[in-house]
Write a protein that binds this DNA or RNA. Structure first.
Lengths: 198, 198
DNA sequence: GACGAAGTGGGGCGATCGTCCCAGTCGCAC
DNA sequence: GTGCGACTGGGACGATCGCCCCACTTCGTC
């Protein structure tokens, strides 16, 4: 292994850790498995990170930032509100379908964070960002479709985030593409009816 | 420890395992932690179960059966469709609030099952039962409220299951009771609009 | 080209994991 | 009451875990 500055090595280890978690779950993401994936020695790991926990923390925070970009819906400007929302949901679903293990890893990381008090805030921050993202999208969608939310957009956003999470989990379980798309259609229909057409 | 037949001991160990998983997560549910919770010795564990995996399998299957009973909504017969659905959601939410660790354990067990091919069917079975349960409830709710589902009830059920899962996860993260109730209200409103009043 | 800091490799430590073994003890059938 | 099978307790095994130590190499600087 050539010489790599510690900070760059941290990034490489976080990337490797995400791959290991995606493939085999967080329980299998041992220090040895991670350094093997990154092609390093154990000593390099503990030179870059004080502990495995420190890496997991960094993994969670960095991965949330990336997720934010990947899922950000590019709203299609034509169609009524239900269609705009459905297009956004389907866009997320295709993202999920293209890399299921990544979303499964995100869920595992969230649950892992919930298990320790000092990590819990990471999960809170994660979901606050999801909700904020959904709210902005919903407001833009209503604007494009010429509608107004009868319920505060923040609440609709929570419904959407909850539904998206549930869609992810159920699809990860049964892998039924058609059912997921039909359900996304129904959910978009249902959510859109929380707004009045102007 | 007094003498207990192996079959009864299996039940006691499964109960103890569920308590350990609820309190500390499945990763901490070691054979030693489980027998300590049950007040047994390690030898008793391996007399009743061939392996830890065998106990986890039994834990998942038995726990799904119980969940089914606990969450089964007792529908209130008065009110319109949105109110009936909201009452059902709120009933589940109070169940969640009264024993958050149990629902967290259920989520962990599901994700654990997803990680191994031979256990995956357990998760599929679990969610099929949830969906079936939701579908029956939705059909009864429509009957009580005098409405007909415009979308097949099975699809609405999937929406409801997905939303319930998401509600669970988001509440486990932020523990915001008011937000959860408002969101349940909005979701019930949205879902109810997938039916036509007769 | 000498030198200190930064980075590397390999072996090893103590703890904990799942599992096993085996001598011993209890309860039940006869 | 005696024998046999069911059950128990404690200790131990090998594997694996996170982490550490230390001799060594490489790089940048002057």
């Amino acid at each position: 292994m050539s010489r790599i500055p510690a900070l760059e090595r941290r990034r490489a280890l976080v990337d490797a850790a995400l791959r290991v978690v995606s493939r085999h779950g967080i329980a299998q993401a041992t220090t040895r498995a991670i350094v093997a994936e990154a092609g390093m020695s154990l000593a390099s790991f503990h030179y870059a990170f004080a502990s495995r926990d420190e890496l997991i923390d960094e993994l969670i925070t960095t991965v949330v930032g990336r997720e934010q970009q990947a899922v950000l819906p590019e709203l299609v400007p034509d169609g009524d509100l239900a269609e705009v929302i459905e297009a956004g949901l389907l866009r997320y679903f295709e993202h999920l379908r293209s890399d299921p293990e990544h979303e499964q890893a995100m869920l595992e990381l969230t649950q892992y964070a919930l298990r320790s008090p000092e990590r819990h805030p990471l999960a809170v921050q994660q979901y606050a960002r999801y909700a904020e993202l959904a709210e902005r999208s919903l407001e833009r969608a209503a604007g494009l479709a010429g509608a107004d939310w009868r319920v505060p957009a923040a609440q609709v956003a929570r419904v959407l985030v909850a539904f998206t999470d549930g869609l992810t989990l159920t699809w990860l379980v049964d892998r039924d593409d058609d059912a997921a798309r039909l359900v996304a259609h129904a959910a978009a229909d249902a959510v859109s009816r929380l707004a009045d057409v102007r």
